[in-house]
Design a protein around this nucleic acid. Structure first.
Length: 473
DNA sequence: TAATGCAGCGCC
DNA sequence: AAAGGGCGCTGCATTA
C-alpha cells in the first residue's frame, strides 16, 4: 500500500484546510430582503406558468392516462406521454432504458407545451437549489459554504451547504436572479481572481507539447479560433479583423463553438461523433454565418458537405458528411497538431496500467481502478486546483501579515472570491497578481507554461452580478 | 417513514 | 481500443 501523498502534498492540504476553514468562517454576505422577495416572486411566476400549462392538450392527454397518479413534475410520465402516447420520436434512452427527457432531447419535440415545460424546469431549478438553498443557510445575513479537501478522487476541492461552486453564470437571466443576492460588505467590493485557461496550461506542464507551448506563449495565436475555423472550414479572413461590433460578436460565437464543442471535449476524451453532432446543432441553433451572411450550412454545402451523416457508432462515416469531416479534423488534431500531447496520453496511461498508480506534479498519488479518460485527466485537474490552493494560502497569510482588511470568502476551482475594502483595491490586486503568478512560479519550478490571472470587480456596495473585468496594472 | 438509486442540471 | 473529466443538489420512484 502506497500513501496517497508525499510530504509536500500533505503540507499543502494541511495549510489548505486551515486557510479554507478561515474562508468558511469569513462567510458571504447575503441580501436577505432581496432573496425573500425573489423567492416570493419566482414562486408566483412558476405558479402562473404552470396554470398556463394546464390548458394544453398535452396535459389533457396526460391526466387522461395517469388519472389520480398524475404528476406534472414527473419526467417518467412526460416521456411516456410524449414518446409513447403522442408518438413523438425519442432519439435517446437513459442508461436504464427509460425515455430520455433532458433539455437536448425535449427541444427536438415541436410542441408549445415542451417550451413552457422546459422554461418552468429551469426556473424551478434555480428557485429550489439557489434561492431557497442559499436562504436556508443564511445566519445573521451571511452564508458559510463548506470547502472540502477530502471528498474527491482527483484531489480537487468540493463545496456544499450550499455548493458555492455551481452558482448560475451562463444563463443571463438566472445569473442575475441569483447573483444579485450575493453582496459585498458595506464600503467594499467583491473581487474575483480567475486563472485563465489553467487546465490547459497545467496539462502542458505534463506533456510539454511544443505546439501547445507556442499557443500559450504567443498571444497572437488562438487554439480555439483555429479549431473553430478547421471544424467549419472557415478561411482565416472570416475569423480575423472584424469590420464591426456585430462582426466581432459573430466571430466570438464561432470561436465559442470551437472551444466548447471541439477543443475541451477532445481534451476530456470525447470523440468526433459527438463533436460533430454538437457543432452541427450549434451551427443551426446559433445561426452561424459568414461575414456576407451566408449560413454555415450553405457554406459547408459549397465545400462538399451535404449533411451531418448517420449518428451510429457502428457505421463508418461516409464521405461528404460532417461526421466524416470531423473524423479527419480529429485525426489532424492529435496526429499532426499535437502529436507530443498525444504521445504523453498514451505513455501516461500505459505507465499507470503497469504500476497501478500515478504521481502528480503536486505530489499526490492516485491509485485504484481508472478508465483511460480518467487517468489522463486526474493529474491535470488536481494540479490545476493545487495552483489555486497554494496561491490562496499565500494570499491569505500575506493579507494578515500586512494587516489588510480584505477577506477571502470563497473559491471555485480556478478562482478566488474576496471581499475587499474600496481603499485596498489597488494594493489587493497588485498583491494578488504577484502571488498567484510570480511567486507561484518561483515556488513550483515544474510550472513551465505561462500563468495569467484576470480580475472581475463589483462596484462598492455592489452585488456579484455586477462584476466587471478590471485590468491589473 | 427513511434510505437509496436515477435522472437531470448547475458549475469548473 | 474506446469514445466527456470532476463535483453537489433536487425531485421522483422504488426499496427497506
Amino acid at each position: 500500500m502506497i500513501l496517497p501523498y508525499t510530504q509536500e502534498a500533505y503540507q499543502l492540504f494541511h495549510e489548505g484546510a486551515i486557510a479554507l476553514a478561515e474562508v468558511e468562517h469569513n462567510g458571504i454576505r447575503i441580501d436577505t430582503e432581496y432573496l425573500d422577495n425573489a423567492i416570493a416572486t419566482q414562486t408566483a411566476r412558476i405558479e402562473r406558468l404552470k396554470n398556463r400549462l394546464q390548458k394544453s392538450e398535452v396535459t389533457e392527454i396526460w391526466k387522461n392516462y395517469y388519472k389520480g397518479r398524475t404528476n406534472l413534475n414527473s419526467n417518467d410520465q412526460l416521456g411516456y406521454v410524449l414518446f409513447e402516447i403522442m408518438k413523438y420520436e425519442c432519439p435517446e434512452l437513459t442508461a436504464t432504458g427509460r425515455f430520455k427527457t433532458d433539455e437536448d432531447n425535449l427541444s427536438l419535440v415541436d410542441h408549445p407545451f415542451v417550451k413552457d415545460y422546459l422554461k418552468i424546469k429551469k426556473l424551478e431549478k434555480s428557485l429550489a437549489t439557489n434561492l431557497i438553498g442559499i436562504r436556508r443557510e443564511v445566519v445573521d445575513g451571511f452564508m458559510h459554504p463548506f470547502f472540502n479537501l477530502h471528498t474527491t478522487v482527483t484531489f480537487r476541492s468540493s463545496s456544499d451547504s450550499p455548493n458555492f461552486q455551481n452558482i448560475p453564470v451562463r444563463n443571463e437571466s438566472v445569473k442575475k436572479l441569483v447573483r444579485q443576492a450575493i453582496i459585498a460588505r458595506p464600503g467594499r467590493r467583491i473581487v474575483e481572481l480567475d486563472y485563465s485557461g489553467i487546465e490547459v496550461a497545467i496539462a502542458a506542464c505534463y506533456h510539454k507539447d511544443p505546439t501547445m507551448m507556442s499557443y500559450l506563449k504567443d498571444k497572437s495565436k488562438d487554439m480555439h479560433r483555429d479549431m473553430a475555423m478547421q471544424s467549419y472550414m472557415m478561411p482565416i479572413e472570416e475569423m480575423t479583423n472584424p469590420i464591426s461590433q456585430e462582426d466581432n460578436a459573430r466571430i466570438k460565437k464561432i470561436r465559442y463553438c470551437g472551444k466548447n464543442m471541439f477543443v475541451f471535449p477532445q481534451f476530456y476524451g470525447d470523440w468526433f461523433l459527438k463533436c460533430a453532432k454538437n457543432l452541427w446543432n450549434a451551427m443551426i441553433q446559433l445561426e452561424l454565418k459568414k461575414r456576407d451572411g451566408t449560413p454555415f450550412k450553405e457554406h459547408l454545402y459549397e465545400n462538399g458537405i451535404t449533411e451531418l451523416g448517420e449518428f451510429d457508432p457502428r457505421d463508418k462515416p461516409k464521405k461528404g458528411t460532417f461526421i466524416h469531416h470531423l473524423q479527419e479534423v480529429e485525426k489532424d488534431f492529435w496526429n499532426v497538431r499535437f502529436p507530443i500531447y498525444n504521445k504523453w496520453r498514451k505513455d501516461w496511461f500505459y505507465a499507470y496500467q503497469e504500476k497501478g498508480w500515478m504521481l502528480t506534479k503536486t505530489g499526490f498519488i492516485c491509485q485504484g481502478m481508472g478508465e483511460r479518460n480518467q487517468i489522463i485527466n486526474y493529474p491535470v485537474q488536481g494540479s490545476a486546483f493545487h495552483c489555486l490552493l497554494k496561491s490562496l494560502i499565500t494570499l491569505q497569510n500575506r493579507l494578515k501579515k500586512l494587516k489588510m482588511k480584505s477577506l477571502i470568502i470563497g473559491q471555485i476551482h480556478d478562482s478566488i472570491v474576496s471581499d475587499v475594502p474600496d481603499e485596498e483595491l489597488d494594493d489587493f490586486l497588485h498583491l494578488a497578481h504577484q502571488i498567484t503568478v510570480d511567486e507561484l512560479k518561483q515556488q513550483w519550478k515544474w510550472i513551465i507554461a505561462p500563468l495569467e490571472i484576470e480580475a472581475e470587480v463589483t462596484p462598492v456596495d455592489g452585488n456579484w452580478y455586477q462584476k466587471k473585468e478590471m485590468k491589473i496594472e
